[in-house]
Amino acid sequence: MTNTPDTPQKAPYPVEVEEGKSYFWCACGRSGNQPFCDGSHKGTGFTPVKYTADASKRLFFCGCKHSGKAPLCDGTHSRL
């Protein structure tokens, strides 16, 4: 088990979210359904991060898995 997530891409994932809907962001970086969880974290010590949309809009979910504002991008990928 490692405490460092995989980095599926060094750019955010633009996603159109729907108000009131919950999304489960992949924190381990192993999901085949990025940026969302598909259960690939089992046995890693990571757990998905739940995000519930407060409005219908486009958001940018972290792709590098190192954001300080997870699950959303904060630009950390530009320093990796």
Rank of each mutant, 00 (worst) to 15 (best):
M1D: 14
T2F: 07
T2S: 15
T2A: 12
N3S: 12
N3V: 06
N3K: 11
P5K: 01
D6G: 02
D6T: 10
D6V: 11
D6K: 15
D6S: 11
D6R: 14
T7F: 04
T7D: 07
T7Y: 06
P8W: 15
P8A: 14
Q9A: 11
K10V: 06
A11M: 08
A11I: 07
P12V: 02
Y13Q: 02
Y13A: 00
P14L: 03
P14T: 04
V15N: 06
V15H: 03
V17P: 04
V17L: 00
E19G: 01
E19K: 13
E19A: 15
G20T: 03
G20Q: 03
G20S: 09
K21G: 00
S22G: 08
Y23F: 06
W25A: 09
W25L: 05
C26V: 09
C26D: 12
A27L: 10
G29E: 08
R30A: 13
R30G: 12
S31A: 09
G32Q: 14
Q34W: 07
P35H: 02
P35V: 01
F36P: 03
S40D: 08
S40G: 08
K42F: 08
G43Q: 10
G45M: 11
G45V: 10
G45R: 10
V49A: 12
K50F: 06
Y51K: 00
Y51R: 02
T52E: 15
A53T: 13
D54S: 15
D54R: 09
A55I: 00
S56L: 04
S56V: 06
S56A: 10
K57F: 00
R58T: 14
F60V: 00
C62R: 00
G63A: 04
G63N: 05
C64N: 03
K65L: 03
K65M: 04
S67A: 11
S67M: 12
